[in-house]
Amino acid sequence: MVNFSVNGAKVSVPIEDDTPLLWVIRDVLGMTGTKFGCGIGQCGACTVHLDGEPIRSCLTQVSDVADREVTTIEGVGATKAGKAVQQAWLNLEVVQCGYCQSGQIMTAAALIAATPEPSDTDIDQGMSGNICRCGTYVRIREAVKEAAKAAAGK
């Protein structure tokens, strides 16, 4: 049994300790916004926040999140940075197929929370772990900038 919280709600999951958080979130808790893309930490589709820090849920054992706070795409809109990123994504029409976008948004929200005024290089480096096969990168760059401004109240 592993206890942790997801988007503010406490959960107790009877499951093997080595199960990746990704599959607990998707298959046990039934929250499908967090995506499977590669399973080896290459693509970022599975990004969630653990106590506010971005992590790869495909590589994080559920036992490692015991008693900690997990935030997923379903809950990130409740944070200032997450809300700003989602809005900027809509304003700039970032999404295409959308499959990578939960992970992109989680990474971007963590990026602007940590770096309120990201430079072009900060954005490229901070977002480089998230693959988008639809190639939405040009708009992601603009949207991160816009989100950072909005989150800073500019």
């Binding site: 929250m31 916004g33 995506k35 379903e74 999404v95 939960s102």
Partner: peptide, 21 residues
Amino acid sequence: VKRLDGPEKVNGSAKFGIDAQ
């Protein structure tokens, strides 16, 4: 025109095949 599938793709509620339950 703004994409009609935009909102659900930024809040995690969009359903892909892999999300079938």
